[in-house]
Simulated scan of single mutants.
Amino acid sequence: MSNLRIIPRLDIKGPNLIKGVHLEGLRVMGDPQEYAVRYYEAGADELVYMDIVASLYGRNNLSDIIRHAADRVFIPITVGGGIRSVDDARHILRSGADKVAINTAAVARPALVTEVSRRFGSQAMVLSIEAKQIASGKWEAYTDNGRERTGLDVIEWAIKGVELGAGEILLTSVDREGTRKGFDVDLVRQVSDAVPVPIIASGGMGSVDHFVQVAVQGHADAVSMADILHYKRIPLGQIREAALNAGLSVREL
């Protein structure tokens, strides 16, 4: 049984770390570099960087930010946003990322998942899924930061993505993102139970109880969080402590 991973998520717009609610209403938080180093030193297991305006420009602009981070942060880094080809993926991985997260381009051309997985290994190919609930127990996958409908059922798309070669799924609940109301545990559990690869639960963490709940009831393999850390509501160490107290298997520092 591998350890449950604690993964701060850094949403980037231009040079700034930002934070929103339901992936909208963005507020500038500061220099992503300072936050990345702080989270690394506090014991984060991995980091996720999302270029949230990449789809507008048609490419990911994080290579400089990632290059600087890789000099000071020695944990795995996943980068997403605007990655549309094997060349884009190579560029980001060469900049210092360990994995690429792909959403919009994978929906547009699912073969890209296979191409990236074959070229760099399935462990480097993360399928990013933005989910919105459309009925009880049913979710639709969205692209462009939760703005564009795809018509794809989230569970079916997750299964297909793994068949195509995705080695991990970053699963964001757009409904919960930035609300601090807790994860969509039902969503996470259904996807987690449907596929054999690790699931990173993202969107909605407001307390350590939410972390424990999505791990235990949602069967998440990793938990991504932003708001709770950026606003310094609960330090990373306290989250890890709560996980250990709940009997969860997390990396001991």
Rank of each mutant, 00 (worst) to 15 (best):
2 S>G: 15
10 L>S: 10
12 I>G: 01
13 K>F: 03
15 P>Q: 08
16 N>S: 01
17 L>W: 01
17 L>I: 01
22 H>A: 04
24 E>S: 15
27 R>P: 03
30 G>E: 05
30 G>H: 00
31 D>F: 08
42 A>I: 13
42 A>E: 11
45 D>M: 12
47 L>P: 03
51 D>L: 14
53 V>S: 13
56 L>E: 14
60 N>W: 13
62 L>T: 13
65 I>F: 03
67 R>A: 15
71 D>A: 15
72 R>P: 12
75 I>F: 11
75 I>Q: 12
80 G>A: 02
84 R>D: 07
86 V>S: 09
89 A>I: 02
92 I>G: 15
94 R>C: 08
96 G>Q: 06
99 K>S: 10
101 A>Y: 06
103 N>V: 02
105 A>W: 07
107 V>N: 04
109 R>Y: 05
112 L>A: 10
112 L>P: 01
116 V>N: 09
121 G>I: 04
121 G>M: 01
124 A>P: 00
127 L>H: 00
128 S>F: 10
130 E>N: 04
133 Q>R: 07
140 E>H: 01
143 T>N: 01
143 T>S: 00
144 D>R: 15
145 N>S: 10
150 T>R: 06
152 L>V: 02
157 W>T: 07
160 K>C: 09
167 G>L: 03
168 E>H: 04
171 L>I: 14
172 T>A: 06
174 V>K: 01
176 R>S: 06
177 E>L: 03
178 G>S: 02
182 G>S: 06
182 G>D: 04
185 V>Q: 00
187 L>T: 05
190 Q>N: 11
191 V>I: 08
193 D>L: 13
198 P>R: 05
201 A>N: 05
203 G>H: 12
203 G>R: 07
212 V>L: 05
217 Q>S: 14
232 K>S: 04
233 R>A: 14
237 G>R: 15
243 A>F: 09
244 L>M: 02
246 A>Y: 05
248 L>Y: 09
248 L>P: 07
250 V>A: 02
252 E>F: 06
